[in-house]
C-alpha cells in the first residue's frame, strides 16, 4: 500500500493522497484495469475535471468525492490510479 503524505496547493500526486475538503484537478490516469478506467471516465473523471473530497467513510475507506455537480464513492486503491494537482 502507498504511503500517505500531505499535499499542498500546487503539488501533484494521487487522488488517494488528498484530505477532506481539498480540491484538485485531474491530470491523467495510470491503471491497467480497463473496465474500471472506462467506468471512471463514464462517471465524468476526465482530464481537467475538478474534484473535491467530500466525505470519508467512518472506517477511512471508501471516499466520497464531488464532481460535475454530484457525488461518487470510490475505494482508495482505485483512486490511487488517478494523477492530480491540488488546487485548493
Amino acid at each position: 500500500m502507498q504511503k500517505f503524505k500531505t499535499l499542498k496547493v500546487g503539488e501533484e500526486g494521487h487522488l488517494s493522497d488528498l484530505k477532506r475538503g481539498q480540491r484538485c484537478v485531474v491530470l491523467n490516469f495510470h491503471n491497467d484495469n480497463n473496465a474500471l478506467r472506462r467506468r471512471l471516465l463514464d462517471m465524468g473523471i476526465t482530464k481537467g475535471v475538478i474534484i473535491e473530497i467530500k466525505k470519508i467513510a467512518p472506517l477511512g475507506d471508501p471516499i466520497d468525492i464531488s464532481l460535475r455537480g454530484y457525488e461518487l464513492c470510490l475505494r482508495k486503491e482505485d483512486m490511487y490510479g488517478i494523477d492530480i494537482r491540488v488546487v485548493e
Binding site: N33, L36, P62, E71
Partner: peptide, 9 residues
C-alpha cells in the same frame, strides 16, 4: 484478486 467499488451516494 483485485476488485473495485464505484457507487453514487
Amino acid at each position: 484478486h483485485e476488485s473495485t467499488f464505484v457507487a453514487e451516494l
